[in-house]
Design a protein around this nucleic acid. Sequence first.
RNA 1: GUGAGCAUAGCUUAAUGGCAAAGCUCCACACUGUGACCGUGGCCGAUGCCGGUUCAAGUCCGGCUGUUCACCCCA
Length: 428
Amino acid sequence: MKPKPVKGMNDILPEVSATWQYLEGVVREIVQSYGYSEIRLPLVEHTELFKRSIGEVTDIVEKEMYTFEDRGGESLTLRPEATAGMVRAGITNGLLYNQRQKLWTAGPMFRRERPQRGRYRQFHQFDIEALGYAGPDVDAEMIIMSSRIWSRLGISRLELEINTLGVPEARARYRDTLVEYFTSVKSELDQDSIRRLDQNPLRILDSKNPDMQGLIEAAPVMLDFLDDESAEHFDTLKALLDAAGVRYTVNPRLVRGLDYYNRTVFEWVTDALGSQGAVCSGGRYDGLVEKLGGKPTPAIGWAMGIERFVDLFEASGGTAPADDADVYVVAVGDGAVNEAFALAEDLRDRIAGVRVEMNLGGGSFKSQMKRADKSNARYAVILGEQEIADNKAGFKPLRSDEQQASVARAELAPMLASKIGKPLTAGQ
RNA sequence: GUGAGCAUAGCUUAAUGGCAAAGCUCCACACUGUGACCGUGGCCGAUGCCGGUUCAAGUCCGGCUGUUCACCCCA
């Protein structure tokens, strides 16, 4: 009986991980260029943390968390998202005491949903948070930063939607009005909407049911309930985005499934990935730090789903740079292997970033050449009886018509370095 | 959690209810120190699992499991 993986938890195979590494590298570089620093967080937190931050009556907390009792009887949960842990770490390490923090983290998150394209039980996120910044300038910078990621990678099938939820009081007033409105037309609501009426009435606005669209169009809008300060915050954000040339649409029905958001929320959506169109989303959560036991601290953050990001990158025709070897070392004859190892190490010492693949497992000359070919290496270096006797090495281009050459051992590194365009290391 | 589609070799796909096939991959040979292309040969399956109908089931029926898509939710 073959072992089976856990449903919704996937292996990231080498052919795919090259793309992951490339994209993660690009995002890391961009995020750090805005002055954000990495923080590494535990995958497991106390269950209570997520209940208090995400909200007791959200889908995530009610039915999607991997919660278990550890041997000491504590209720622990595999993190379903990163913000709660980030804020907790800020509080417990005193990072927010009269300080501001710009942080990012990345790694696996866990939600027990039914898997489909772009939705897995173990999935991965990049998470960027700015704590202690009241905005709206940070709000704009965060969005501009995400926009830079897309343009850098040639991803175009994405649109930005933004909205504001106002302060909690305004949101509560709006919520009451909304409940009143939908209750008055309850007989026309579908099953899902009736359920949401109690649980999360704002989500009714998000319904994809065509029969509901008329009712939703006619519903009261949040913008009419906005407090003056939030309205001004939102206007400034829009002005900053306009000035930066970032295009967006205001979607008054954009609400979040996590309870901690207020004011700015945004989402990058695509139609290229089937039904899971949200690639990246976030918003402001000014009340969360205090709610979790810190002192009042404004904050904003966003998360990007890496699986969806990779999928979208590939759907946009993007490919990661090849990570094939530069050179494959062929060693024929028992005496040659020792020398070949030394030669391979020498190349790695002397050429910065060179990728040298040593033939392993012996084999005939022919089979070694076959492996060299299949490795996609640009060059083969050949060491046999003859070369060892002459203190030379065969240098054979595998991807061009150039002639094979016999090169003095000492000249091999400089020659290879110039062929592959990588620098010799200093001091050699 | 709900609904629908799909399940044959490592991968992609064949097989009017009648002997389970092919291509690719991999290995070897041809070619005893030179890869790719061509050729020859080899490896690899109890057709996802359990049951039923039938002289006969990969094929039809039922259940299960897995997977995909959609709903839902969201990254």
